[in-house]
């Protein structure tokens, strides 16, 4: 089976700060990491490949040359080859242009069976690229995927997270899956041997010319949305933290809720 994972390099938002004036992210000195959702997608994809016992995992990203390190990380955790789509033309892409660009790359790679994505990226949090990419490729999609099982006949059993549990879905390739890791997920940290192996795996860099396709759909020009202004909503109301023993705190909370008529006493 030919499996593809689309990933993104993001600033480590646990260490990022927002400029109080411009409301944009201060990226100086903030380390870049592989989006943790994508990390999970790559790990799951590699696991599926190992389960099947054949095939390959190709990992793709669109980004600046520095995004290479995110792809190297994917190779170190088990992907077989990587494609970095990088060109100034792609700058300013919104989710639609990004999905189009990724779809061009996937088409160029030839026939495939499954595409994996992270549910969303921790910087933009749109969760749109996966579904838009499925649309561009003309294949079905499942989002909020936590777990995937595959049997000998390549039938897929998918655990999709919902607010109150899981939907268990059965489906088959071709399909796009957007993965959402369980709360307990800890990214695998590749040891040096995996890193050394990763260095030997095929790594391709494609610019707009190599990629081909409709140039008017790339980058800022191909984007339907544009960021005009970024701002933080003004804080409303005040927050009160209730301290004390569990029982005592619960009682205080109950009193407050009653007082504001959020609860009624029976």
């Amino acid at each position: 089976m030919k499996l593809i994972v689309c990933v993104k390099q993001v600033p480590d938002t646990t260490e990022v700060k927002v400029d109080p004036k411009t409301h944009t992210l201060i990226r100086d000195g903030v380390p870049s990491i592989l989006n943790p959702y994508d990390h999970y997608a790559v790990e799951e994809c590699v696991r599926i490949k190992e389960k099947i016992g054949e095939g390959s995992v190709t990992v793709i990203t669109m980004g600046p040359p520095q995004a290479r390190s995110a792809l190297m990380r994917c190779l170190a955790i088990g992907a077989d080859d990587a494609v970095l789509i990088s060109d100034k033309v792609f700058a300013g892409s919104d989710t639609f242009a990004t999905a189009y660009t990724l779809s061009q790359a996937i088409r160029k790679l030839g026939p495939f069976d499954m595409v994996f994505c992270g549910q969303q990226a921790i910087d933009g949090d749109t969760a749109q690229v996966g579904p838009e990419l499925a649309q561009q490729l003309g294949i079905p999609q499942v989002t909020y995927v936590e777990k995937i099982e595959i049997d000998d006949k390549h039938k897929l059993t998918i655990h999709k997270q919902t607010e109150d549990g899981y939907h268990i879905l059965e489906t088959k390739a071709p399909i796009l899956l957007a993965l959402l890791p369980p709360a307990s997920f800890q990214p695998e940290h590749p040891p040096m041997s995996s890193i050394l192996k990763a260095k030997k795996k095929p790594f391709n860099v494609w610019d707009a010319k190599v990629l081909g396709g409709d140039e008017s759909k790339f980058g800022l020009e191909g984007s339907f949305t544009q960021v005009i202004k970024t701002y933080s909503p003004p804080s409303r109301g005040k927050c009160e933290i209730i301290e004390g023993e569990d029982k005592e705190a619960a009682k205080k909370l109950g009193d407050i809720l009653l007082k504001h008529e959020a609860l009624t006493k029976r």
């Binding site: 390190s69 190297m72 990380r73 990214p187 940290h189 040096m192 890193i195 990763a198 260095k199």
Partner: peptide
């Protein structure tokens, strides 16, 4: 070099979690 950078990232995580 690149493998050293990747290694540092990885060992940082290893140290933090294990």
């Amino acid at each position: 070099n690149e493998e050293q950078e990747l290694f540092r990232e990885s060992i940082k995580e290893f140290c933090a979690s294990e």
